[in-house]
Design a protein around this nucleic acid. Sequence first.
DNA 1: TATTGTTATACTCTATAACTATA
DNA 2: TATAGTTATAGAGTATAACAATA
Lengths: 143, 143
Amino acid sequence: MSTLSKTPALSSALSLATVRLARQLRGRRAAPQISLSQLSVLTTLANEGSMAPSTLAAREHVQAPSMTRTIASLTELNLIDRKPHPTDRRQTLVSASSAGLALLADESRAQESWMTEQLSRRSDDEIAVLTQAVEIINRIIAH
Amino acid sequence: MSTLSKTPALSSALSLATVRLARQLRGRRAAPQISLSQLSVLTTLANEGSMAPSTLAAREHVQAPSMTRTIASLTELNLIDRKPHPTDRRQTLVSASSAGLALLADESRAQESWMTEQLSRRSDDEIAVLTQAVEIINRIIAH
DNA sequence: TATTGTTATACTCTATAACTATA
DNA sequence: TATAGTTATAGAGTATAACAATA
């Protein structure tokens, strides 16, 4: 069977697996201090530094009003800092605060205990496959 | 590096990749007739046959009221059939209707055009990795 | 005029708690 | 009493449209 004929079935299977796994992840995180959407934004800021909300929205593939809301919630939790853009007064710049970085450090220790538990039961080969799959998916998402 | 020390980082990366991909899938399906949640239920019914709502809720890992709502929406679209349980009048049995099966056939042809497009750009090796990853994820989800 | 960000509003998906009907 | 399913209600996450401030 050629790759071409396999692709539609994989597309369907991957899509369903993704939404089903996302559903479980949302519900099964242990004692979540923040949501996965908030965590995603905070991680992006920690990795890529300070940026404007519009840039962040594009990076996260959400619309501007959605990012406004996420930024507001993270600001209220003191996990990100906002400062005015040095030259363009329409813009603001957001970045991970020290508390935000500390929370990410916490998460990377105790993180995603349900998922970590599941992964601990996989073989080395399976872990290798999943690691490669995440890299491929991240390239797909970047588009 | 041992599998054990890789697992927490993978857990985090896989979780973020999953929610980000799910977000794009939700927004980027072309002309969706039904949502991915509805599609997930319909696919389960098509694959596993008639079952009670409570069984379906367990299979999909959602609570009963969530399944009540999804079943109601699919019933309204005539994509599933409901009939009384033969002996227990508290229960009902739901199954994919002929229109539901036809819609699944449509989906498997034109399905997920964004995802299919992305996959068409991947190498045979990458497709193989993703195919294996989906199998692993489905085993994780089944728990 | 065009761009940045916010506000107003609405929809989907999911949950918990309380209820009805049946076993 | 216990179970299957529904209704009532609420919250998170996302979207589009309309707006204000600034470029």
